[in-house]
Amino acid sequence: MRLAFVASETDVAQRARAALIKRYGSVEPGDAEIIVSLGGDGFMLRTLHTYRTLGVPFYGMKLGRLGFLMNQHELDALAERIERAHPAVLHPLEMHSTCCDGAEHRALAFNEVAMLRQSNQAAHMRVSLNGEVKLEELVCDGILVSTPAGSTAYNLSAHGPILPLDANVLALTPISPFRPRRWRGAILPHATRVGFETKDPNKRPISATADFHEVRDVRKVEVKQSRRNAVRLLFDPEHNLQQRILDEQFAL
């Protein structure tokens, strides 16, 4: 089994990488059958973005503060663990943003796309689904479009719903909504194209962030699921992602 070990810059992750390479050997990511990511959830997201085009599965080991996307770190029996692992297919979101100066940007998000106010002024934005305006004016601190994998992260902190991994839906969740006061978001079919347009870009600037890729001073943004950029994560049977997402709904 050709393994490539990549690790965050922390001392503990680097020491674990050295020990694993000594035990199992290592190849370059482009030559690997499996990419083993050592760190926390943030580093796993960066690993997915960096190596997703290689078309190989990813197996994570928790060596950071958060490890929802990771397995437990153990030195022994790695090949056996990988062979028994359950795959989870993640479909990212594709963000297409247009800035006030006309510049266009595209980025992928495996967790969420977040529209956030840039100043002390609340954001005023128009929200549309598949080209049809659903909210003419949403006044808020921001709004999220979340994947099922990301629904237990920022989306949950914003009081959004937890989504089963195979539900084929997305979560649309406002952050501190002021108007409409009673609107608390929506659950959308996965093929929905979600559009945002700032209504006062000079006085109330807005940024758009896809995972960790931020674009500032956006005028409009479209978000949709990207089926062609899917990745596979491997999980130990006792820590499979589907069960973790289910269990999170009963966490106290």
Score class of each variant (00 low, 15 high):
80 E>L: 14
43 F>I: 01
187 I>Q: 06
164 P>G: 13
185 G>H: 04
47 T>V: 14
97 S>W: 10
184 R>Q: 11
193 R>H: 14
21 I>C: 07
157 S>G: 11
32 A>M: 12
202 N>H: 14
177 P>D: 03
177 P>I: 04
186 A>R: 02
150 G>N: 07
95 M>V: 11
156 L>Q: 05
122 A>Y: 15
218 V>S: 10
201 P>M: 07
19 A>N: 13
222 E>C: 12
221 V>D: 00
46 R>H: 05
180 P>T: 06
130 N>Y: 13
22 K>V: 12
67 G>Y: 10
91 H>K: 04
68 F>V: 05
200 D>W: 05
93 L>H: 01
246 L>N: 07
143 I>E: 02
86 H>E: 10
118 Q>L: 15
234 L>V: 05
140 C>E: 06
159 H>K: 14
149 A>S: 09
86 H>Y: 14
58 F>K: 00
221 V>K: 04
42 G>W: 02
134 K>V: 15
174 P>H: 00
115 M>W: 09
238 E>A: 00
90 L>V: 15
168 N>G: 08
180 P>I: 06
248 E>P: 04
109 A>C: 00
217 D>I: 01
204 R>C: 02
150 G>H: 04
40 G>C: 01
99 C>Y: 11
163 L>D: 01
229 N>Y: 09
252 L>R: 11
196 F>H: 05
141 D>G: 10
225 Q>S: 07
56 V>E: 13
177 P>Y: 05
161 P>T: 06
128 S>M: 09
14 Q>W: 15
238 E>V: 04
251 A>E: 09
77 A>C: 13
166 D>L: 08
34 I>D: 08
89 V>C: 01
215 V>D: 02
248 E>D: 06
160 G>Q: 06
93 L>C: 14
174 P>S: 02
232 R>N: 04
141 D>C: 07
11 D>F: 12
161 P>L: 03
123 A>H: 05
130 N>Q: 13
204 R>P: 00
11 D>W: 09
156 L>G: 09
31 D>S: 08
53 T>C: 08
223 V>M: 03
108 L>D: 09
130 N>K: 14
80 E>I: 15
141 D>S: 01
164 P>V: 13
164 P>T: 13
95 M>K: 02
88 A>P: 06
223 V>I: 08
9 E>T: 14
127 V>K: 14
71 N>D: 13
167 A>I: 12
221 V>S: 00
145 V>Q: 02
244 R>Y: 05
207 S>K: 06
158 A>S: 02
38 L>T: 10
9 E>V: 15
75 L>M: 15
139 V>N: 02
212 F>S: 04
117 R>C: 01
233 L>V: 09
11 D>N: 14
171 A>F: 07
246 L>H: 11
189 P>C: 11
154 Y>A: 05
48 L>E: 04
241 L>Y: 00
57 P>Y: 11
63 L>E: 00
68 F>K: 01
